[in-house]
Design a protein around this nucleic acid. Sequence first.
DNA 1: CAAACAAGTTTGTATCACAGACTATTTTAT
DNA 2: ATAAAATAGTCTGTGATACAAACTTGTTTG
Lengths: 108, 108
Amino acid sequence: MSQRDKRQDEMKAIDRLDRIIHEPARLKIMTHLYVVESGDFVYLMRTTGLTRGNLSSHMTKLEEVDYVEVIKEFVDRKPVTMLRLTKKGRNAFLEYRKNMALAIEATK
Amino acid sequence: MSQRDKRQDEMKAIDRLDRIIHEPARLKIMTHLYVVESGDFVYLMRTTGLTRGNLSSHMTKLEEVDYVEVIKEFVDRKPVTMLRLTKKGRNAFLEYRKNMALAIEATK
DNA sequence: CAAACAAGTTTGTATCACAGACTATTTTAT
DNA sequence: ATAAAATAGTCTGTGATACAAACTTGTTTG
C-alpha cells in the first residue's frame, strides 16, 4: 500500500472514532468496566480519579447511549450505584480500540 | 504485574494524553504533518476533510502551543499558507502515540 | 436533636468545535 | 474596463461539553 493510501486509511479510522468513548474521562470508565464487568460508583471514583459530579455526568452520558447499565440499589440502607458494561458498550469499546490502533499505528 | 497495577498504568497513560492532539481534527493534521513534514493549507483541507474555518482555527491552536510553524508566502501572486511540524510538535505527537498505545493495549 | 457524613445530582462557568458568513485579492467573462 | 466568479483564509455565532462547586436527600454519630 502506498504512503498516501495508508494515510487515507488513518483519516478514515480517525473519523470513525466514537466521540463518546474518546473523551478521556469516559475512556477511563470504559477501560475499567471492560475488565471488571461491573463496579460501583465509589470504586470508579477512586480508580479513575474523577470527582463525583464529573463521574455522575459521564455515567449518565454513557447510560443514555446504552453503553452502560446503571443499577441503583440499597446495601445496608445506603444507596449504591452499580455500573455494568452492556453488550453494545463492549462492542463499541472494542471498535474504538481497533480504530485508534489503526490511527496511531499506521504512521509507524 | 497484577491486573490492578496494569489498570493503574492505563489510567496514568490516559491522564497524560495531550488534549491538544487528542482532538480528532488536530490528530489528523498532526498525523499528516508527521509524515510529510510540511503541507499547505489547501492540501491539508483536502486530505483531512476539514472545512476552511475549522482547519484555520485548529491550525491557530497548534501554532499557539508551538506544535506547528505557520509560514505565509506568495506563490504566483496568491497567498499560500504552509504548515510545518516543529521539533516540539514532533515530540508531542510521539508522546501522544506512546501514551495512547499504553492506554488501549494494556486491556488486551 | 444537631452536626457530620455519604452518595449522588444539579447548576454555573468557561472552553471548544464547527460551519457559515465575511474579507481581500485575483482571475475570467462580457 | 468592469462585473462576476473563484481563491485563500479569517471571523463570528451557536450549540455542545467538561468540570468543579454547591446543593439534596438520607443516615449515622456525638
